[in-house]
Each structure stands twice: as structure tokens, then as C-alpha cells.
């Protein structure tokens, strides 16, 4: 049996593009997203908007230096926005998130806050003491985060004798429902931006939860998978 059917098929399918791959890379002919790390950072921010630099480093296994460099470039090119939270900043894809939603996503990106939120979701009416036990967290931490979650309207509490019980509010569900419209705008925005940059853009896949785009220019190409359901993915 002759070998090599795979390579032959690859040549046959990509034949039209073949000539282009050998061209010199023109510097301004490339997109921000042709760099794999930069692309992954942007994809990560779609999945977890309003992350701190340290979270991005950890999730993608990149150094702080590299991550900062790419974040700066993406901010400069206005693909992402940066907003101060305390003494650090969080980042999110521009046009994806309303500024007023930043604190909600910021807190839910925090591992402990998220665990507490999920614990309350799983057992509505939990006491602080119960949450401490289930999650193995210090009492102080639970007090601090429940307060924070409550002040943002993500949870509510009711007094029950000596202690308080915690419940989820409808806020996150409402955000999920309102998301679809906003994501339509976000998708339109990003596709327009690519077109303005003369990138040939193909939508490979479009669902409620994500859009997969292929961009090509001057022989370089990249496939971007952008998640578009931040109020769902933030809990993952």
C-alpha cells in the first residue's frame, strides 16, 4: 500500500493558499492575533472577562513579563480594556462587558468568592458556618466574601435566629438573559474591526456560546475561538 494519503489530501485541500505561505511576512500585514500567546490571552479574556494579570499567567502558563507585554499591546490596539480595581487592574475584551458589570465578573473570577457562590447555589439557605465547613475556608474569608457578594446583589441574606442564611438572587440569571443582545453587538464589532484591518474573515462556527473565526492576511492565518457567554463561563 503506498503511504502518504494524508499529506496528499492536505496539499489538495490547501492548494490555493500554498503559494502564499512562502511569502515574506510583511510586518503590517499581520494581525495581533497571529501571535499565539496574544491570541490565547484574548480568548481567555472572552472566557473569563475581568481577570487580573496573575490569573491569566496561571491559566495559560505564561510568565508575568510575557503576559504584561501582550496585555499592553492589546490595550493599545483597543482590543481589550483595562480598568483599575484596587491597586491592580482587570482586563476584558472591549465592547464585551458593560463597565457596570465589571465588579460582578471580577468577584466571580475570584476562586473563593466563586466557590461560596456555587455552594449557596447548591444549598440555598446555607449558614456561614456550613459554607466554611464545606469549602474548608477560614471564617474571616467567608464573612468577607459573602459581604462583598451581597453588596453587589449576587446573594441576599435573612436572619434566622442567631445566624444568617444566604440565598442567590436573580441577578446572574438576568445577566445571562440579557447577554445575547450584547454579544450580537460584540460579534459585529469584532468582525467589522477585522475587516477594517483588511483581514479576510470567515465565520467557521457560530453558536450562542461561542464564535469561531478564521482570519487570514498575507499568508498568515489564525483561528480564534471566542466564548460569548461570560456570565455562564465565569462560574466554570
Amino acid at each position: 500500500m503506498p503511504r502518504g494519503v494524508g499529506k496528499a489530501l492536505e496539499r489538495a485541500i490547501t492548494t490555493k493558499e500554498r503559494g502564499m505561505f512562502h511569502k515574506e511576512e510583511v510586518r503590517d500585514g499581520k494581525s495581533e492575533f497571529m501571535n499565539i500567546n496574544r491570541k490565547e490571552i484574548f480568548q481567555y479574556l472572552c472566557l473569563h472577562p475581568c481577570s487580573y494579570t496573575s490569573m491569566i499567567c496561571k491559566a495559560l502558563g505564561l510568565s508575568l513579563h510575557t503576559t504584561n507585554w501582550h496585555l499592553r499591546r492589546l490595550v493599545e490596539s483597543e482590543y481589550i480594556s483595562k480598568i483599575a480595581q484596587g491597586k491592580n487592574s482587570v482586563y476584558y475584551p472591549a465592547e464585551m462587558i458593560a463597565v457596570s458589570d465589571v465588579p460582578i465578573l471580577e468577584i466571580l473570577n475570584n476562586e473563593k468568592a466563586r466557590a461560596i457562590y456555587v455552594a449557596i447555589a447548591e444549598k440555598s439557605g446555607s449558614f456561614q458556618g456550613e459554607i466554611c465547613k464545606i469549602l474548608g475556608l477560614q471564617h474571616q474569608a467567608v464573612i468577607w466574601y459573602t459581604k462583598k457578594l451581597e453588596s453587589l446583589g449576587l446573594i441576599s441574606s435573612l436572619e434566622d435566629g442567631k445566624y444568617r442564611r444566604y440565598y442567590l438572587t436573580e441577578l446572574l440569571n438576568r445577566k445571562k438573559e440579557e447577554n445575547a443582545m450584547r454579544m450580537k453587538l460584540f460579534r459585529d464589532w469584532i468582525v467589522k474591526r477585522f475587516q477594517r484591518e483588511m483581514l479576510s474573515t470567515t465565520i467557521l462556527r457560530l453558536t450562542e456560546d461561542k464564535i469561531v473565526l478564521r482570519i487570514e492576511k498575507g499568508g498568515s492565518k489564525a483561528v480564534l475561538t471566542l466564548h460569548t457567554n461570560p456570565f455562564v463561563t465565569v462560574l466554570s
Partner: peptide
């Protein structure tokens, strides 16, 4: 090359 991955668009 016994295994080949090919990226292709629908078009």
C-alpha cells in the same frame, strides 16, 4: 506523516 491534521474552512 502517518497521521495528518488538516485545517480547512467549510468553503
Amino acid at each position: 506523516d502517518l497521521l495528518v491534521f488538516i485545517d480547512a474552512s467549510g468553503k
